[in-house]
Computed example of a mutant assay.
Amino acid sequence: MLIGRIIILFLFNFTVFKEALYLGKGHLKDEIILLVSNSGDWLIWSTIAASSILYSLTLYKDHPEIKEFIHTQVKQKRQDID
């Protein structure tokens, strides 16, 4: 979970990490600690959302019956719209 949080923080704070990399190793560690300790509930919820998305994609990829069900539902919705 901590690695997932760091990845999400990195995505949202890319410029901060980029500047810290230029300043040196100690600055990067300090920035990571500062961002992890000051992050609130949004980080927890975004980690949960990311894990749910990855789980759903894995199910879709590995289970043909789920893939078939989703394709059938999409076709029915398209027919209802037309």
Score class of each variant (00 low, 15 high):
1 M>L: 10
2 L>P: 08
2 L>Y: 10
2 L>I: 11
4 G>I: 02
4 G>C: 05
6 I>P: 02
6 I>E: 04
6 I>V: 02
7 I>P: 04
9 L>K: 02
9 L>Q: 00
10 F>Y: 08
10 F>K: 08
11 L>N: 10
11 L>Q: 12
11 L>K: 11
12 F>Y: 11
12 F>S: 07
16 V>N: 08
16 V>K: 12
17 F>L: 04
17 F>Y: 02
18 K>E: 06
18 K>L: 04
18 K>P: 01
19 E>S: 04
19 E>W: 04
19 E>A: 05
20 A>G: 01
20 A>N: 03
21 L>P: 06
22 Y>M: 11
23 L>V: 12
24 G>K: 13
25 K>Q: 13
26 G>N: 08
26 G>P: 01
26 G>Y: 03
26 G>H: 02
26 G>M: 03
27 H>W: 07
31 E>M: 02
31 E>S: 01
32 I>L: 00
32 I>F: 00
34 L>R: 15
34 L>D: 14
35 L>V: 00
35 L>H: 00
37 S>K: 02
39 S>G: 03
39 S>R: 00
41 D>R: 10
41 D>P: 09
42 W>Q: 05
44 I>H: 09
45 W>H: 06
45 W>D: 03
45 W>A: 03
46 S>I: 03
46 S>L: 07
47 T>Q: 11
48 I>G: 09
48 I>V: 14
49 A>C: 06
49 A>L: 05
49 A>H: 10
50 A>D: 03
50 A>Q: 00
51 S>D: 10
51 S>H: 12
51 S>I: 08
52 S>D: 12
52 S>F: 09
52 S>C: 11
52 S>E: 08
53 I>S: 03
54 L>Y: 12
55 Y>A: 14
55 Y>M: 13
56 S>F: 09
57 L>F: 12
57 L>K: 14
57 L>C: 13
58 T>I: 10
59 L>W: 04
60 Y>F: 08
61 K>P: 03
61 K>W: 04
62 D>S: 10
64 P>A: 12
64 P>M: 07
68 E>W: 12
69 F>H: 14
71 H>T: 11
72 T>S: 06
73 Q>C: 06
73 Q>N: 07
75 K>C: 05
75 K>V: 06
76 Q>M: 13
76 Q>K: 11
77 K>H: 14
77 K>L: 15
77 K>T: 12
79 Q>E: 15
79 Q>N: 15
80 D>V: 13
82 D>I: 15
82 D>M: 15
